[in-house]
Design a protein around this nucleic acid. Structure first.
Length: 265
DNA sequence: ATGGTCGTCGTACGA
């Protein structure tokens, strides 16, 4: 089973790139974040011929939004709270029908958190920390089994998840309070599948800012996108690939897709 | 030293 997660930064603008991604990699499942389209305007007919006939989406006007496309039947899993009491379309959970037991798949878009890393001065940062606290509490009560969690978590937790650990310690996405919060969440019972395949001693990024003229030359990236698995799937992971070349596509997203091959049977 | 660039909506705001 091949799963891709991608912050597409506007589904409607990048429909041709989604098509290209599906043609090149033939995934069985794609999880998107920042679709930025209200459900009423979801371009489903433009996607009829993708070969991923099962899909679910949760979107709003302009901001956020998540979607999942699948070759296999999906069932919405909706017994989750509205995180932070907001209906801001940051989480979609589905059960994937496989020949064996189903797989529970979470697609998350964690709040970015604004620029100032102080919850008393910046309510977006407070929202981010509260979001992490709520998800952590929830998974503590319900440790994951046969589960995959993917998405744009907007935190680069390890030193080699950023281009300069020292220079980013006070930059939102790599502050100690964030990386510690993310560690608490993953420690509710997940494994960082990307770092199981690509050792923590290697630099690994999934996002490069639009603000650098030459993303490849400056290479000031961060690993903001993640794939986590429950321990019972640990031996099933076959490969993980960061599709960095997608950053060079025409009108690219600032995030690149991350792909996992897993044999869940 | 502190810009720099996108996408969406509508000429600001979030990332």
């Amino acid at each position: 089973m091949r799963i891709i997660t991608w912050n597409i930064n506007s589904l409607r603008l990048r429909l041709p790139l989604l098509r290209k991604l599906v043609e090149e990699e033939t995934p069985d499942i794609i999880c998107l974040q920042e679709t930025k389209v209200h459900d009423d305007l979801f371009p489903q007919h433009a996607l009829d011929d993708l070969g991923l006939p099962h899909y679910l989406y949760k979107g709003m006007k302009s901001y956020n939004g998540v979607a999942i496309f699948s070759r296999y039947p999906l069932e919405l899993v909706d017994h989750f709270p509205e995180w932070c009491g907001k209906k801001d379309c940051r989480h979609l959970a589905v059960s994937i029908g496989t020949p064996d037991a189903p797989i529970l798949l979470h697609n998350f878009y964690v709040p970015a958190g604004g620029d100032i890393p102080d919850p008393t001065e910046n309510e977006k940062f407070a929202h981010k920390l509260n979001f992490l606290k709520e998800t952590t509490n929830w998974f503590q009560k319900t440790p994951p089994t046969r589960s995959i969690l993917v998405g744009d978590l907007n935190i680069a937790p390890l030193e080699n998840d950023v281009w300069s650990h020292k220079q980013l310690l006070k930059i939102v996405s790599h502050t100690p309070v964030e990386t510690e919060s993310l560690n608490e969440w993953i420690n509710t019972g997940f494994i960082d599948a990307m770092r199981q395949i690509i050792p923590a001693s290697e630099k690994l990024y999934t996002w490069w800012s639009y603000r650098n003229k030459d993303w490849k030359k400056s290479n000031r990236g961060r690993r903001l996108d993640h794939i986590w698995i429950s321990p019972d799937l640990k031996e099933k992971v076959q490969n993980i690939t960061v599709l960095s070349h997608a950053r060079d596509w025409e009108t690219p997203s600032d995030h690149v897709p991350v792909m996992m091959d897993i044999n869940p049977s």
